[in-house]
Simulated assay, not measured.
Amino acid sequence: MNISKNLKFLRLMRVCGRNMSDLSHPPNIAPAPQAGRRSCTLEQLKNRELIRVHGSEVVPFLQGLVTNDVTRLQHPEGPSSIYGLFLNKGGRVLYDTIIYRTNNPETYLLECDRDASSEFRRNLRMFRVRKQIDIDSVDDEYSPWVIFTKNGGDGELVHATHNLPELFVASDPRLPSLGTRVLAPTDISWAKLVKGFWQNNEVVATPATADNNYQLLRYKQGVGEGVQELPPGKCFPLEANADFLNGVSFNKGCYIGQELTARIHHSGVIRKRYMPIRLTAPLGSNHTVQSVAGANLGRVFGHAQNRGVALLRIEQVLNGQQELTVDGDRCYAERPEWWPRDVPSKRRVASIE
């Protein structure tokens, strides 16, 4: 995808005219899957926004700010996108991002929470100092979408078939189960995306529903995203599972918050992590997870239907036999399948020492 070359063209097209508004939304009735055909969900991520960072010093600029190794994106055989976190000086998470490379080696696109877009850009500009770096939103030109199956993953559904040169397609760099990201022109319709990917109707694509959407998919995996679920300054990157989600490099040079992140990693003492949680009743105003005895074990930061994501104490929740409650009702914490078998715990580290 040649994003940098298409920006001016897309802006001109936006001025000249857009598709009719009703074409910008998926049909109300989803086609039923037919025998022998795969089924997937195509959803626009309306709560995510793309920020363009451009300049001759863009790589060293980002390298000094983000937890992951941005230089990997420079290699022809390297990934087309990486997951990373921006931290404060105390090593706590400020913003989560997916960084995408473009055909222009001096231009990268950073996906962020739409509600935090202004603060995120302000934070980036604060650190550019005298570097020749341009930072601006491309929200009026490109939008992120996601394609996933009901059980998650299977990026092969899209990579071999799409024929729209204006798209950028990349598997989610965190987990295969989170599907495939698609960066598409803002004025492209849901129907055109479907037709562009599957000309021969080899896949049945359906719009997101209340019972099948990207948010629920993330909650079932225990992956937090955005400032509501990863509140700025409230958790450390390893508590947000950045080490398990390919979001932190322990071999790169210094970046803001790096010292404490490395210290926590090498000590192995990580008392809390984000986990999926299953609710038995609608969540009220109290999001604190407690034991029956009343001990606070964590907090739910995002929830929908009977699923949620919570920052919980590993030792007490996973290794204990106690029941968990939230807002007075029973709840169940689940160990994510994608976690390594031997998740470091306080007890294990203490025994080693």
Rank of each mutant, 00 (worst) to 15 (best):
G302H: 00
T186A: 15
T288I: 15
P282Q: 05
L324V: 12
K252N: 08
P207Q: 12
L216R: 04
G284D: 07
L183T: 02
G247N: 05
G294T: 10
P185T: 05
S291N: 04
D187N: 11
T261F: 09
R307L: 08
A262M: 02
A304L: 09
L238Q: 11
G226K: 00
A262V: 04
L311W: 02
G247Q: 06
G222W: 03
A191Q: 03
E259T: 13
A191I: 06
I188T: 10
F244A: 08
V317L: 09
F236M: 05
Q258H: 07
A304S: 14
Y219M: 14
E323Q: 11
D187M: 03
G294Q: 15
A242G: 04
E259L: 06
A310K: 11
Y255H: 03
L193C: 05
R218Y: 01
R218C: 00
E315S: 15
G196Q: 11
G226S: 07
E315H: 14
A240E: 04
L245Y: 03
R307H: 10
G308C: 07
S249R: 09
F197W: 00
D329Q: 14
N246I: 01
L238G: 00
G196N: 08
I314V: 15
P276Y: 02
G308Y: 11
L324S: 10
R278E: 03
L260R: 01
R313V: 08
T206L: 00
K195T: 09
A210H: 00
L193R: 02
G302P: 01
N306H: 07
R271L: 01
V309T: 11
P232H: 02
Q322S: 15
R299M: 06
R181T: 13
A310I: 13
S285D: 15
L260Q: 01
Q305I: 08
W190H: 03
F197N: 00
F301R: 07
L324H: 10
K234V: 12
H303S: 15
T280D: 14
N200G: 12
K234Q: 12
T280L: 07
K192D: 11
T209Q: 01
Q305A: 10
N246S: 12
Y255W: 01
N296W: 08
R181W: 14
A240T: 07
T209S: 07
T280A: 09
V203S: 03
A205D: 00
V203W: 05
L216H: 03
R271V: 05
P207V: 05
G247F: 02
P232Y: 02
K234N: 12
N201S: 12
G226N: 03
E315M: 12
A262T: 07
A240N: 09
R218S: 03
V326A: 06
S189Y: 04
R313M: 05
P207G: 11
Q258G: 09
V300D: 13
V194R: 06
E259N: 13
H266Q: 10
Q322F: 05
P276C: 12
I277G: 12
R307W: 10
P276F: 06
